[in-house]
Computed example of a mutant assay.
Amino acid sequence: MLDPGETAASAGKEPRTARGRRTLRAILDAAAEEFGEKGFHEGSVSAITRRAGVALGSFYTYFDSKDDVFRALVRDMSDQVRAHVAPALKDAPHQIAAEQAALLAFIKFARTHKEIYRIIDEAEFVDPESFRMHYATTADRIARRLQAAAERGEVRPDVGEIHAWAIMGMNVFLGLRYSVWNDDVSPETIADVVASMLARGIATQE
């Protein structure tokens, strides 16, 4: 998420003023709407600037091309997810509760930002590096917090990268099913079921 001091603009075009950062934020938000509705190939720079309420020249003040704003948008959406989930993690009393809170926060985020799925999926073909980075950095954050929890004795000592990718994959597809395709189950119920599965597995309890 673009905050003061962070940059999403093309190299050498970073905003230097608060007004510039607001304009950049407006362009990114408009790009999310445009690409979310039309996709990358049908979306256009002129439509993005109309949505943002800025002049066409303002776009090129911060971005070199449609490809550049799309690439910046993928990074920005990853940052938005991270910023939305982070507070929930801080208040969790233990790691299973943290994963439960993270999923709950993500499901709620995805319900109000459904365009993230179309944009990230298109990134696989429009900008494969951004696509891979989105998932790799997300999995890395999960792996680090699982490993820290293992050191605290809250989860099994052998947790690692595979567990992190499994949790991320589960969360991604739960968001797709219960946020984008349909929201017929409460986020709390989804997070409760997953927390129980993480804590106890799915084998018959003896």
Results as ranks from 00 to 15, higher is better:
Phe125Val: 05
Ala149Pro: 10
Ser65Gly: 09
Arg21Gln: 08
Thr49Cys: 09
Glu42Asp: 15
Glu6Tyr: 00
Glu206Cys: 00
Ala30Glu: 03
Asp29Ile: 03
Pro157Cys: 02
Ile190Val: 14
Ser44Leu: 02
Arg50Tyr: 00
Leu103Tyr: 01
Asp91Gly: 11
Leu198Asp: 07
Gly39Lys: 03
Ala55Phe: 08
Arg71His: 08
Asp184Glu: 08
Ala92Asn: 12
Tyr62Asn: 05
Ala149Phe: 10
Phe173Val: 05
Arg19His: 06
Val45Gly: 03
Glu42Tyr: 05
Ser196Val: 14
Glu33Lys: 15
Arg75Trp: 10
Leu24Ile: 03
Arg200Phe: 15
Gly169Tyr: 02
Ala203Phe: 08
Asp158Pro: 02
Glu99Met: 15
Asp76Gly: 00
Arg25Phe: 01
Arg111Asp: 01
His113Tyr: 04
Val54Phe: 05
Ile202Tyr: 01
Ser186Arg: 15
Asp67Ile: 02
Gly201Thr: 09
Gly20Pro: 14
Asp184Asn: 14
Lys108Glu: 14
Glu6Pro: 01
Asp184Lys: 06
Gly169Lys: 13
Ala191Leu: 06
Gln80Asp: 12
Ser46His: 12
Met1Ser: 13
Leu103Thr: 07
Ala52Gln: 11
Ala88Gly: 13
Leu28Asp: 08
Ala199His: 08
Ser44Met: 02
Ile116Asn: 03
Arg22Ala: 15
Val85Ala: 06
Gly201Ile: 11
Gly53Asn: 12
His84Val: 04
Ile96Thr: 12
Arg50His: 05
Thr7Trp: 10
Ala191Tyr: 08
Phe109Ala: 01
Asp121Ile: 08
Ser186Thr: 14
Met170Lys: 12
Asp76Cys: 06
Thr49Trp: 02
Ser65Lys: 06
Thr17Asn: 13
Ala30Arg: 15
Val194Arg: 04
Gly169Glu: 05
Val159Leu: 04
